[in-house]
Nucleic acid binder design. Structure first.
Lengths: 208, 208
DNA sequence: AACTGTGAAGTTTTTCACAGCC
DNA sequence: GGCTGTGAAAAACTTCACAGTT
């Protein structure tokens, strides 16, 4: 993940950048032009020193005495995260969750466009969901290859998640967002992240 | 979060317990009776030492030379996380996401039961979604109070998230899982966690 | 006066490595 | 031989605090 000349930036730092970007976009929407590490920190409940240090990994984005130009910082963070382009995403699973994902408007303006929706069930295939006609999983590999899709969201039942993930990797997908509540094994070159609301709820109940 | 006699267990440790619990439940389902920190670590991509150290915070759950009794460890982790009981949860927002959440069967057997689904729109109120009749937000406070609901999932548009969160806190909710892509301010006594798929996608695109 | 960028210090988290037990 | 539980060591991460700039 690094070379000798450019030490890797900690993954935990990368993980915060999307939060900064989200907050900055919000500030811009509120009509603000400039912000500070303190203001951002207050909103995100992160220390201002943390924010300054994180941003400093990528160069001096701010001005002493002034703060950060919101528009400029948004552009730089988008560039760092490579979301100054539009990524095509495949969704696998056209159940309630896959359907909700496919209807969600929030991907578009943050760097992602859902390109296809796949399902294995003959009942679902051919059905219209949002702007998509559900495609059969049997065509998944070919379609993903053809369109050079690098990102997939997995919204299938847990018992199918590993099999589908294997097929996705085989088809050339490099990043998987897995909504199934199960750990998936993928090669080290493949990015994987998980969304499981129950783990968040269980984390919180510890403190109740 | 701690007393002098019982030092607090790091939050990052608590956050991993639900992952252990999920993996253990899976192992049990596969018919296994016993596991080891190595097997768990392999599945979760976490070092075995990490798992042993995490578990050791709560007492000696394993046997040297043998490993961990899966059933026993599941019970202990459920007790630690307080999910050996059923928590009632309120869902706010009956759009595509709130609807998908309300249909999802995966909460039930992991400690959570959706009790009510609220929405502000007169079009939605009274409509049947899954097992629920959508209730008006105007009745939210009273209903949450009456049923003593402590946990809520927020699936409303970003611009309404703060207002609804304030009302939830006012109604006595102590933990909020926020699906809206915006940071919410709540008192320090209230647990809050976020689910925003786009932040995960943006995290991964950095490495692509 | 307000704010960034950053070495240094401090704290937290992870890994090591091994004694002790089955 | 295989495994846990755990002090000690190492690594990673966060905060401090201040020089330097606007």
């Amino acid at each position: 993940m690094s070379s000798l000349s450019t030490p890797a930036i900690p993954d935990i730092v990368i993980g915060r950048l999307p939060l900064y970007l989200r907050a900055l976009t919000r500030l811009r929407q509120e009509g603000k032009l400039v912000t500070s590490s303190h203001e951002l920190g207050r909103r995100l409940d992160i220390s201002s020193a943390q924010i300054r240090k994180d941003l400093s990994h990528f160069g001096g984005f701010g001005k002493q005495g002034t703060g950060y130009q919101i528009e400029f910082l948004i552009e730089r963070l988008q560039a760092v995260l490579q979301v100054n382009q539009e990524w095509m995403v495949a969704v696998i699973g056209a159940g309630n969750l896959g359907s909700a994902i496919s209807h969600y408007r929030g991907f578009q303006d943050r760097g992602f466009r859902i390109a296809h929706l796949f399902d294995i069930s003959p009942d679902k295939v051919g059905q219209r969901i949002g702007a998509f006609v559900v495609l059969p999983v049997s065509e998944m590999r070919e379609t993903i290859r053809k369109d050079d899709i690098k990102i997939a969201m997995l919204a299938v039942p847990a018992e199918h998640a590993q099999t589908v993930a294997d097929q996705l990797v085989e088809a050339g997908v490099k990043a998987i967002l897995n909504y199934a509540p199960i750990n998936i094994n993928v090669p080290g070159t493949i990015q994987i992240q998980y969304i499981d609301p129950v783990t968040h709820l269980q984390h919180m109940t510890y403190y109740l």
